Amino acid sequence: MNTIPLEHFLFVAAALFSIGLAITVTKRHFIGMLLGIELMLNAVNLNLIAFSRHDPERLGGQLFALFVIVVAAAEVTVALAIILRVYGHFQTVDPDKVSEMKK
């Protein structure tokens, strides 16, 4: 049986995390930042599952990945609610244009 080496998983996860970090830093609206954070969380999940394959007797990696997925779903729900409230008040989702929050 051909198995994929751990280094390939780590390379893909590092690339996903880097892309997510670049998106989070460069995007000028809240939705883009949220997408970048989700990419970074998916990279963490990929690492957890990849390392969990080394010890099939324990399910720690899968359980932590499931926990990260639940936290990510809650984070998206709260973030989207906040974004909708900010948009309703300021009529923009650009963090630089929300001037009242700078003080």
Rank of each mutant, 00 (worst) to 15 (best):
K102V: 00
A81N: 14
V98C: 06
I23L: 04
G32D: 08
L66E: 02
V70I: 10
A81T: 13
A13V: 05
A15G: 04
I49G: 09
T3C: 07
D55W: 03
H8L: 05
R28N: 15
L80Y: 13
K97T: 09
R58W: 03
L41E: 13
M40D: 06
Y87N: 15
V76L: 14
Q91L: 03
R58G: 06
Y87E: 15
K103Y: 00
L10T: 00
M101R: 08
M40E: 07
S52D: 15
A79G: 00
L46N: 03
H29P: 07
F11D: 13
I83T: 06
V71M: 12
L10N: 04
G36P: 02
H89D: 10
R58A: 14
G32F: 01
K103T: 04
L21N: 08
D94N: 15
H29L: 06
V93G: 01
L46D: 00
L80G: 07
R53N: 13
N47H: 10
L80W: 11
L66P: 01
R53T: 06
L80P: 08
L41R: 07
H54Q: 14
P95Y: 03
M40L: 15
L59T: 09
L63A: 11
I19M: 09
V71H: 02
A79P: 00
I23F: 07
K102T: 02
V25L: 11
A13R: 06
V12H: 00
K102I: 08
I69W: 01
I4T: 11
A15K: 02
T77G: 11
L16K: 07
L35A: 14
T24M: 06
H8Y: 01
A73L: 13
P56I: 01
K97S: 13
F30S: 02
E75S: 13
F17W: 12
L10I: 03
P5W: 03
V98N: 05
Y87F: 13
V71Y: 00
F30W: 14
Q91N: 08
L16S: 07
R53L: 12
L21Y: 01
T24E: 05
K97A: 14
V25E: 05
R53S: 14
G20L: 00
V86H: 08
M33Y: 10
S52P: 00
G32R: 02
L63I: 08
G36C: 09
I82Q: 05
D94Y: 13
A43N: 08
P56M: 04
G32I: 07
I31T: 04
T3P: 03
A14E: 03
P56R: 01
H8W: 01
A14M: 06
A81K: 12
E100G: 01
E57A: 02
I31Y: 13
D55P: 02
I82W: 13
F64V: 11
L39T: 11
S52R: 07
